[in-house]
Design a binder for these strands. Sequence first.
DNA 1: ATAGGCACCTGGTGGC
DNA 2: TGCCACCAGGTGCCTA
Length: 283
Amino acid sequence: MPELPEVETVRRGLAPVMEGVRIAKTDVNRPNLRWPFPENMGERLTNVRVERLRRRSKYILADLETGESLLIHLGMSGRMLISGAKLGAFVHDHPKPEKHDHVVFHMESGARVTFNDPRRFGAMDILDTKTADQHKLLRDIGPEPLGNLFDEAYLVEALATKKSPIKTALLDQKIVAGLGNIYVCETLYRAGISPLRTAAQLSKPRRAALVPIIRQVLSDAIEAGGSSLKDFRQADGDLGYFQHSFDVYGREGDACRTQECTGLIKRAVQSGRSTFYCAKCQR
DNA sequence: ATAGGCACCTGGTGGC
DNA sequence: TGCCACCAGGTGCCTA
């Protein structure tokens, strides 16, 4: 379920295991994910220290001491599994290799970080840290929704010319980074806006109102992920998925949760993807 | 330039 | 139990 909040949760979970720690060896178990891995990736990720873990949109960037960074995307089904790490009183134990363990980082501390991705829509690349922004996969991505560049004036303007439905527009990473199918549905529900409405057709105040709601939806989810991290740390080291309850996503046919609303959650298909919404209180 | 559809993959679920 | 259709949290690329 890697949208921005999940990726941020993964980053936070990996940080204590990877930041400031040397990768002793990296096993690369196949030649590619969505695209071929960069040349000699295993060797280039052997005997290098990770300085810092960052996130940009749904990407994790591991800045290395060499001036290069490892770029990681989890796709639809990518997960990170920690094993052998001592974090506080807990020791991760996820000892047996599993199917779809594509890349394994053996940290000098003895911890292992395993990238597992059944569908292989994920990606990895190595780029120059200084020019990371210009990387093909990053250069066209819009502002971080939790950052300062994302504000009412920006979004009002960015949506002003969009002829697509607001659902589709918010899913567009060029407009705002990090939202995926779940959190766009949740955002529009909280905003009381129909996902079917054309973006440009929404009044300026309604477009502007999306900004604090997007921030809140994502912050809430990150917080939920943060509390779930504690559980993962005690258990199997599985980062990437956490229990979270949604107001509309996946709730087709269920009652709308808005006070006084008697509507049922509907499912529609937009750009080939499911949209969940209440037709009664989302207009 | 922009909007929409397809493709890339595997696995889980529900119906017959 | 088996088989099949359909669904899934993303996004680059191709087409109109």
